[in-house]
Design a protein around this nucleic acid. Structure first.
Ligand code: FES
Ligand code: FES
Lengths: 178, 178
DNA sequence: GCTTTCCCGACTGTTTTCGTCGAGTATAGC
DNA sequence: GCTATACTCGACGAAAACAGTCGGGAAAGC
């Protein structure tokens, strides 16, 4: 199985999204700032998530992303499979053909079994349960005022696409290098 | 967690070794030929396995490798950890410090749990059980004649270190390219 | 028409992985 | 001793995977 930062970031971003989507669509720029993930990278990730129908998008001002279905019906496995394509631990990729003809190699069953275990587990964890965990831990969700347009006075920091403060390693706070 | 061909090869090689070690030490050259794994690569792998005391080595003619302890007391997790060092699915590597100070990130627990599942499973499979599987499937172990020295006549194919027939992808039979 | 926001594909730099090579050491048998 | 067998070690290099960027575009709202 493949488990990379792509999958980790995707899960983190989805939690962020699930926590806040009641106030309407959430923009990637906002997620980028909160979670310190590069905006460009998020775009890539959410492109895949959308194609797998885990999220829905709304364009234009006030737009952003929303969950494609209820958080309780999205599992971690769904998310990871969406962004990290193959979730398979075997060498042959499930085709049982490491050897010439229909003969699986000595260890095929072992990897297949491992695979099943992992998928089963990740499939047993729903996005909702992760969200609940966060709420239980007292994460504060700024209940955005839903103001369509503030009387533009304060020079709001515009989220620019280039170079998020530098997404080194952090997933939610102070960034620090490897 | 890291799961690469290194780990797969190591497990395959260990099965081969376990199947045949009753006839005395097994050479890497022999394993290399049977399993189509490059000899040089096997040397690297077995170096690590030896440092982790999973195998023991005997030098000189007639030498080779033997299991370091009973097959029933070696688990797949042991093997993989030996060659693929960190068996950890979290970003922080267990130190719980994706964020600044002692704060674990939103997903730490998730990855840690996954990790535990995987290790538990791999730890529950012993080398002995894999060997039994193979025997049950009718794998033929050439019960080598234990002849110390044949009356050298037939030009025995000497296993040379250079270029195993080309270890493309196969783990035990006809090789074929990716 | 202007801004916001998503959308897409191609691209590049780094890291990891896979596998090789060369030189060396211990042991056994003659 | 000499030689052949085998393991031992470290450095090296090509190739693939990964992480992240960039530029241009298209819908939506005002
Ligand atoms: S891993 Fe599936 S046949 Fe070898
Ligand atoms: S993964 Fe451990 S703190 Fe983030």
């Amino acid at each position: 199985m493949r488990l990379t930062t792509k999958g980790r970031f995707a899960v983190t971003a989805m939690i962020d999204l699930a926590l806040r989507q009641n106030n309407g669509p959430v923009t990637l720029a906002a997620i980028s700032q909160r979670q310190q993930i590069s905006l460009s990278y998020l775009e890539q990730l959410f492109g895949k998530l959308r194609r797998h129908e885990l999220v829905e998008s709304t364009r234009g001002p006030g737009g952003g992303y929303t969950l494609g279905r209820k958080a309780s019906e999205i599992t971690v496995a769904d998310i990871i499979v969406s962004v990290d394509e193959p979730i398979d631990a075997t060498q042959c990729g499930g085709k049982e053909n490491c050897l010439g003809e229909g003969h699986r190699c000595m260890t095929h069953e072992l990897w297949a079994a491992l695979n099943t275990k992992m998928v089963d587990f990740l499939d047993s964890v729903s996005l909702q349960s992760l969200v609940d965990d966060q709420l239980a831990k007292g994460v504060v969700v700024e209940n955005a005022p839903m103001i369509k347009r503030a009387i533009s006075s304060a020079p709001v920091v515009k989220p620019i696409r280039v170079n998020a403060p530098n997404s080194v390693f952090a997933l939610g706070g102070v960034a620090f290098s490897k």
